[in-house]
Design a binder for these strands. Structure first.
Lengths: 332, 332
DNA sequence: TTGTACGCGTTATCAG
DNA sequence: CTGATAACGCGTACAA
């Protein structure tokens, strides 16, 4: 094996494979891509040579020629919500992408629209996944301009070439209110300053679901903007003599649970904490057992994001579509 | 601008830029790389053309020609520790890499050594960062074989071409024991089943530091393998009449803090929780204020990992080295 | 100071 | 069924 001046092994090329197998270089290529019928005999010789040399096709050359880099750009948001949750998405997406033969390149939201333009123009990415997309998101414009297939997790206003995968937050809202009613609650206290976050599309969809359901179900909805540590106290003040109060938030369940534990509220019967699961609650699982949890189905959302993107990539003239994953109550 | 059959915009090439600027293609290239003096006049014409066309050099072609992809592979561990912590590393590394002109490609630990071989042989990555490396790590072998520069976060036994960046866990161990003594503790209870994790190199280095310091400082070290929820009770049993007990663990501080809150141990004077900060403790910060915390300096570790890798990449015959970042007590 | 020409390793077209 | 051969877009040695 040849070595360059730095003493690094120079990987074998398809030319090397061809020589060893006694065929032409193009034949090697066809064996790899399968875009042309090859006789069983030569195929085996080529494959043996590939194995012997440990040959892997050069990514740069392949990309240059075919305009397909095999790389999907993943735009991750800045630290705002729960980083643990985010990492689950990232890891799942990376694993699924590999399963389909793609790699994941990180693009931080900090780079913004310019970041998109860069990876698109340089041709590093042949498709994009955007996380935590808002209704009006500055990143959508350059993506649309690129013409690349993309998937957003979060629902923007327009998505001509792109598909949308997300949890069905409206349904989530209805489910929470219904459960509060079933648990005999007169009030549903929503914590986490949701009122101030209406611009976020998941929040606004969730609130729409809650408010929609509240027109039919007699549960009073209270939006709490205060600090999470004071949620238990706030809930106690709401509690009517014979009615309980349900608590819910899209995030910060751990903090509230912590506050409840610290204030002794866990032992009381007046408040019912409903939780969105998956927010790394394993650490407090002992106390969570009796807490009804909703599965936000992040694994499914991640897997769908990838498989939908692959569909857009591989299908000619594939139509983008919106897929909302239904939240589910976790039993036990 | 030309469009291909899918209706996608075909990005301009350096040839297009050259035509517009009235120079040869190579001149454009030289302006970009700066590897040859260019007259002020033509440089401006070229730069104007680049701006006008929104030109970005094609990554595939550049990589093919120069063997430098501008991509650093980042191998992230499976879900084992705190995913929130991990995400901080990942985001910081991605941001720093961009600052130096590199992109980050995710490689999941699940792919193992084969994953390394793949990204190396295909030439997608020109360098690697490995997270949570053990003393004997199967991923090290293919990395060494590749001859690519790399940085590990975590200290393997051998690292011929690679540098090591990590927190100084031995010093951390000494600091914790010293602090326990200063706080008037007769016992230091280490939770989180550290005894069973001695194979992990950060754990073994930490324990070495603790045990080393324990030879000079009169604090009895107790390794606790029980569930985190029972740590407060365990600590109470240790407490001597006039001596307190210090608690520490490399992870799971939140769980222990939670257990202390639930059992009312926070109000007691008998136990002192010493915490490794940064493990997303913001949610419980109200209660943490009086808790002495050590800064694990993850941002610095991440930044150093990138800058050290860049040094290896850009410096001819750069010698790999080990850099241990000193932990610090956080005041206030 | 600038231009010409070649090759990086593939994919894909055109002959045979 | 298979082998030459032409791009793909850029970096750089060689000429001018």
């Amino acid at each position: 094996m040849a070595e360059d001046r730095a003493g690094r092994q120079k990987p074998p090329t398809s030319q090397d494979v061809a020589r060893l197998a006694g065929v032409s270089q193009s034949t090697v290529s066809y064996v790899l891509t399968g875009s042309r019928p090859i006789s069983e005999a030569t195929r085996r010789r080529v494959e043996a040579a590939i194995l012997e040399l440990g040959y892997h096709p050069n990514s740069g050359a392949r990309t240059l020629r075919s305009r397909r880099s095999g790389v999907i750009g993943l735009m991750v948001p800045e630290a705002d919500g729960d980083d643990g949750v985010l990492m689950v998405f990232v890891r799942t997406i990376a694993r699924e992408a590999r399963r389909h033969g793609y790699d994941i390149l990180l693009v931080t939201a900090q780079e913004g629209a310019d970041g998109i333009r860069r990876v698109v123009r340089t041709g590093v990415c042949e498709a994009l996944i955007l996380m935590e997309v808002d209704r009006h998101d500055e990143r959508i414009a350059p993506v649309l301009a690129s013409g690349l297939p993309f998937v957003t997790i979060g629902k923007p206003e327009e998505f001509p070439h792109g598909s949308v995968i997300d949890l069905d937050f409206e349904m989530l809202g209805r489910m929470v209110l219904e459960r509060a009613h079933e648990e005999g609650c007169a009030h549903l206290l929503l914590f986490g300053a949701l009122d101030h976050l209406r611009s976020r599309n998941d929040v606004s969809r969730f609130l729409a679901g809650v408010e929609d359901a509240a027109e039919e179900i007699p549960v009073a909805v209270v939006l709490d903007d205060g600090p999470l540590a004071e949620v238990p106290a706030r809930a106690r003040r709401l509690a009517a003599p014979h009615a309980r109060t349900a608590l819910f938030g899209l995030g910060g369940v751990r903090q509230v649970l912590f506050a409840m534990a610290a204030s002794g509220a866990l032992a009381q019967e007046g408040t019912v904490l409903l939780a969105l699961g998956g927010e790394d609650l394993a650490d407090v699982s002992g106390l969570l057992a009796p807490v009804p949890q909703i599965d936000p189905r992040r694994a499914e959302v991640s897997e769908l994001a990838v498989s939908e993107l692959v569909r857009l990539l591989r299908t000619e003239d594939a139509t983008p579509r919106v897929t909302l994953v239904e939240p589910r109550w976790l039993e036990g």
